[in-house]
Design a protein around this nucleic acid. Sequence first.
DNA 1: CTGTTAGCGCATTCAT
DNA 2: ATGAATGCGCTAACAG
Lengths: 334, 334
Amino acid sequence: MNIKSVAREAKVSVATVSRVLNKSGAVKEATRKRVIDVMERMNYSPNVVARSLKTSKSHTVGVMIPDITNPYFSELIRGIEDAAKRNNYNIILANTDMDRQREEEIFDVLKQKRIDGVVFASKMIDDTIAHVMRKINIPIVLTSTYTDKLDFPTVGVDNEKAAFDMVEHLIGLGHVSIGMISGFLGDFNSGYPRYAGYKKAMECHGLSVREQWVDYGEYKEEDGKRIAKQWIKCGNLPTAIFCASDMMAIGAMNAFIEEGYRIPQDISIAGFDNIKMASYVPFGLTTLAQPIHAIGDKSLEVLIGLLEGKPIKEHKIILPHTIMVRGSVASKKQ
Amino acid sequence: MNIKSVAREAKVSVATVSRVLNKSGAVKEATRKRVIDVMERMNYSPNVVARSLKTSKSHTVGVMIPDITNPYFSELIRGIEDAAKRNNYNIILANTDMDRQREEEIFDVLKQKRIDGVVFASKMIDDTIAHVMRKINIPIVLTSTYTDKLDFPTVGVDNEKAAFDMVEHLIGLGHVSIGMISGFLGDFNSGYPRYAGYKKAMECHGLSVREQWVDYGEYKEEDGKRIAKQWIKCGNLPTAIFCASDMMAIGAMNAFIEEGYRIPQDISIAGFDNIKMASYVPFGLTTLAQPIHAIGDKSLEVLIGLLEGKPIKEHKIILPHTIMVRGSVASKKQ
DNA sequence: CTGTTAGCGCATTCAT
DNA sequence: ATGAATGCGCTAACAG
């Protein structure tokens, strides 16, 4: 049941069937109807593999992320998939766990499968992976990923400004002793800029960043929890803690609650990301909202732009962030 | 840069190149080396699309789920993808939002893309979608999905027994007034059996199911929260609440905490699923643990078995559940 | 052990 | 407006 049998049945050539299939070229309405009829009667479904071989377009893109289990990435994927659906693309999903070897392997099979492009999220691009990505020679869009080695388009928020805004929000609420549970400063995508924004906001308002109130984690709940428990043990807490991720904020909240503190009466906690879970803690988590879904959506739109040969206007696409006010931060004004 | 140019460069025929590529047939070690050398030097990457056209195998499977943003499904997908990786398959991910029309569309394009099989999760299979799934004529494995119309393999836990075990656990802890925030009873996959297990356990121990302590939601946080707040307003609470999903359990917890109750001192709450988030609430959520990752993994393994023509031994594959004891349930023994 | 060749199903160019 | 013929890159049957 291929194009040929349809042609035979409809008493036309395969070229004509192909024409009605792709709405290319002109076909007399009568024969078009006839062909369509036959296709339906035979329950014909064109073989996209053959078409891809011919056109070298698969209408499929690869999406490589560290771990779909991370709520940030599952929202991101949803945005990507929604945009894909709109544009009649499909996505091949691959988890990398940020393992460089695994990433290379995936790039390799994606290339072999002739996918049209990829959306890539990972840790910082080093020379090795940059070389692989260049060599593979297909359009790539980066998100949540820092690079100064590649000139692929990047989609995300202005992390430094976002952190600055959040800390300024806390200061505006009367907080002066503000701690931060940061990401690692070697992470130039999120870790460093968010810390830099925090520091800048503090200095901007004449407040001091105290070393004992800054610690570093890998954005996981466990990290936030561990650090908060440590601080509790040392006594002498800030009145507010800004966390570089919602998961760390949730971990910190859990630590404080388990130790008998009340949030936000005893201590205020702010997060970063606005994953869905942020609204599923008691009274809600106040957080710096990234438009996660929109970032995914835009990433795919940019990729499709690349595929269609649109000239790239801007390489660094910044989407707007907002502050999502919920119950985990209290005012310190008297 | 195709197989032909490699053949030319290595001074062999395309057949020989194909042989070393697929390790099929015998090739003299010397020529094999030479071919491999050439492939590397030319940075040759076989065109899997052409191969698929020839073999009618794409080594790609479709995965259709309601929403990747749902933590249950993101863990499921992770299991599926891990199994896919092990078996050198890729997955095309599609969110359906349980929309029947969307599901049909996706089945259609997946068929056109000649994917080898699909893992399907959805609401109950009705006649219309059953017809589509039969007609598409490719191997399908079901998970989280009830059907009595199709004889496709199904992977999951024994929901009724699981619920029974959990409620018995609560009873063993001394609880006698146990409420349930259930799924809808029309959901034959999870809603009805989990309720049935609850009821059976209660009756089994001579306890009565009180109508005012049973309510129904769609497994979301909001549902658990709404129902719990309602119960609080009515006063007269059970000492323990069994929820048909972790998200509803989290919602219920949030409701109680927001209303000033302490968990588990004032009320015990148990969930179902053991999504990661269940361990990220203060003191942890006691829950009926589904082996979510394993369910995904097994689903794909079964699908691959189908693809390789293995005879299906059992159509209903039940994976073992456990009770994950954390801090949200207290003992009522004196 | 190696080479020749016939398709896989389709899009597309060139005639007509 | 339609058809005939070519080739996309590969696998596998067959021949040697």
